[in-house]
């Protein structure tokens, strides 16, 4: 079981952003997407999250085809580009609002995950008063809060300090042990290699190859 992209192509306003993408992301594995800016990493993630519809091809998630059998992945945690929350609420209130949608986790888990990313659960500061690093930590907390089956993290290390990266690594290890399918992108290649089990190279909207991170080239 996992996520399988079969001949996925996507054009936006006549411009091809993905071309014949064929790749499989396995459960219990962290897949790192590597590529230069505009290569299509975020678009692959958006496609898998159900935010954009492929022009051609199909995406199968745990045996169900996206846009045909399901509108969105059944159980997904998401951090795509910049975290976005309600500016007039605290971190805990923002997470609680998201948790209320599925009512799968309660206040205790919200407090726990805030602690796991290094934020203080009782912090009274509003989101708009957060630093960039704190916003990023909150975005990571929101993505992993419900222990999703599919975890999509686009540039989660942006604005994170060394301690934040260590916490992220611990969280990823935990989610991986739970059998999640984890997709990750990061502009720091060495860090991506450290965090991932498999590295997939994305070039001009296509996945040109995937290999275990230990055998991936150093640069």
């Amino acid at each position: 079981m996992g996520v399988q992209l079969k001949h996925v192509s996507k054009s936006i306003h006549g411009v091809a952003v993905l071309t014949d993408v064929n790749v499989t992301f396995h459960a219990g594995e962290i897949t790192g997407l590597r590529g230069i800016n505009g290569s299509g990493k975020t678009m692959i993630m958006r496609c898998v999250a159900g935010l954009i519809r492929p022009t051609k091809g199909e995406i199968e998630i745990d045996g169900k085809v996206l846009w045909r059998d399901i509108a969105f992945p059944q159980d997904v945690g998401l951090l795509i580009e910049n975290p976005a929350f309600l500016p007039y609420q605290t971190g805990a209130q923002n997470l609680q609002m998201l948790a209320d949608i599925k009512a799968k986790v309660g206040k205790a888990r919200v407090a726990e995950v805030l602690g796991q990313v290094g934020l203080v659960p009782d912090d009274k500061r509003k989101y708009h008063q957060f630093s960039l690093g704190m916003k990023q930590r909150l975005g990571i907390a929101a993505a992993v809060m419900e222990h999703p089956r599919l975890l999509i993290l686009d540039e989660p290390t942006n604005a994170l300090d060394t301690e934040g990266i260590q916490r992220l690594q611990n969280l990823l290890a935990c989610e991986k042990a739970n059998g999640s399918i984890i997709l990750l992108s990061c502009h720091d290649y060495q860090l991506l290699k450290t965090l991932s089990d498999v590295i997939c190279q994305v070039e001009r909207g296509s996945v040109v190859g995937c290999e275990p991170s230990e055998s991936a080239p150093d640069a």
Partner: peptide
């Protein structure tokens, strides 16, 4: 939709 609504949408799974 460009902000927090994206999360709500994905979590709710209903456009």
């Amino acid at each position: 939709l460009a902000g927090v609504g994206k999360h709500l949408l994905v979590l709710s799974r209903s456009r």
